[in-house]
Amino acid sequence: MLNRKIIAEIRKNQSEVLSEIYIEYREEFIHWVIKNYHCSIDDATDVYQNVILVFYENVLSRKVEEIRYDLKTYLFTIGKNKAMEMKRKSYRMVGKGDMGEYHEQEANNENAEKEDKIVEIEKSFKRLGIGCRKLLNLFYYQRKSIREITELLGYKNEATAKNQKYKCMQKLRELSFYSNYVKG
């Protein structure tokens, strides 16, 4: 099946195939969003990029193993939800007064601390060596198995790859949570 082939290709060759899909449906999708949701080209482009990312992450997390209908329909279905979400957000921005803003701020505060922590971890992640970055990205973002990672990165065996993953996580943990204490 063609779509199953594409999904396998994305898992193997992610960015190349994804870019091709991006180009293939870009113009039609952006026109469609502008026409149906009356937004700017910039907003429609943001929606489209979001859709491609969601599709990609669904493929990685194996939420999509096979698309029963064609890829275009699948992308436009995600797109419909994303475009509506964008519209809802813009209405909220226009509609909320000072009190609405206050309540929203209060609700956001609960997540703000967590968000700050994740931003810090992301920064620490960028400070890791390229080997650790690759390994952790393959395991936690691209959802590759330890066996696949062993082959891809050329480790001696799965135990070595697992051990390296553990060490990389420890390094990231230190950089993210304990570097302040070390500095102090």
């Binding site: 967590k114 971890i121 992640f125 936690y140 996580m169 993210s176």
Partner: peptide, 15 residues
């Protein structure tokens, strides 16, 4: 939190 940070970095890279 570490996993979320790694995933966020991956997402940003793709973005």
């Amino acid at each position: 939190a570490l996993i979320q940070g790694i995933q966020r970095a991956g997402k940003n890279e793709m973005s």
